Simulated scan of single mutants.
Amino acid sequence: MSSPTETVRRPRRTAPRVLQTVLTAAAGTLLVALTLVTCIDVVARYWFNAPLSGAYELTEIFLASLIFLALPLTTARNEHVEVDLLDAAAGSRIARIVRPVTGLLSAGVLAIFAWRLWEHAARLAEDGAVTDSLSIPLAPVGFLAAGACAISALAAALNALRP
């Protein structure tokens, strides 16, 4: 039993941990919203012959957002799909040398994606691009994708440099 003078230690709220919590909560919320929109659309379409207006657009936006919100989480946890042909052929020593190089290469590719997506989102914002039926602005989705790729690039670089 602990004495009243002892303090209970809680895990520190570091920026990566807070970011992980926010991204996980946002992705979970989007997954629930995507499921609800799909269920409502299917029920309304087949039982009442009245499909949910804009369901296709909402599904597209929710799915794209969900993928990009999950990208930094997947990258930070090293949970991307990998093909380890080099490990089997070359052995563990070479794999240990190549792994940081491929990690930094992945970080570079993600950084380029972030840059290009940011430019594209800026053009969408400048043009005032919206979806066809619901007039939802497209630029925020582009900026979300760019930010997620930037965070993923940082996570990939940190993973590559970690011993």
Rank of each mutant, 00 (worst) to 15 (best):
A25K: 04
V32P: 05
Q20I: 02
V32L: 14
T14Y: 04
V37M: 08
P11N: 11
I40E: 11
C39R: 03
L23Q: 00
R17I: 05
A27H: 03
T29P: 00
L31I: 13
P16A: 07
W47C: 14
T21H: 02
W47S: 14
L36S: 10
G28L: 10
A15R: 12
R17T: 10
A33K: 03
T38Y: 02
L36T: 13
T35H: 06
P11G: 09
Y46G: 03
R12C: 07
T14E: 06
V43E: 08
A15I: 11
T14K: 06
V22E: 02
L23I: 01
T29D: 02
P16G: 08
R13L: 14
T14N: 04
P16Y: 07
D41G: 05
T38A: 14
G28E: 10
R13K: 12
V32Y: 09
A15E: 05
T29A: 14
L31M: 15
A26S: 14
L23P: 00
T38H: 01
Y46M: 09
P11F: 08
V37A: 11
L19A: 15
A26Y: 00
Q20E: 15
R17P: 00
Y46W: 14
A15F: 12
T29L: 15
A27T: 08
L34Q: 12
T35W: 09
G28K: 11
P11I: 05
V32Q: 10
P16C: 08
P11Y: 04
L36M: 13
W47R: 13
T29W: 11
Y46K: 12
T14C: 05
V22D: 02
Q20Y: 06
T21N: 06
L19Y: 01
V37P: 00
T14F: 01
A33H: 06
A15K: 05
R12H: 12
R17D: 08
A25C: 08
Y46R: 11
L36G: 07
A26Q: 01
V18K: 01
W47Q: 15
D41N: 15
V18R: 12
T38I: 12
R45L: 05
T35Y: 06
R12N: 13
L34R: 00
D41W: 02
L23M: 07
A33E: 09
L23F: 08
D41F: 01
T38M: 11
L23E: 01
A27F: 03
T14L: 05
R12V: 13
R17W: 10
V42T: 13
I40R: 12
T24K: 04
L34N: 10
V32I: 15
R45H: 09
V32D: 09
T29G: 15
L34K: 02
V37R: 02
T21E: 10
A27I: 03
G28C: 11
G28P: 06
A26G: 06
D41P: 03
D41K: 04
Q20W: 07
Y46V: 10
L23S: 02
I40W: 14
P16Q: 08
V42W: 05
A44D: 05
L19R: 01
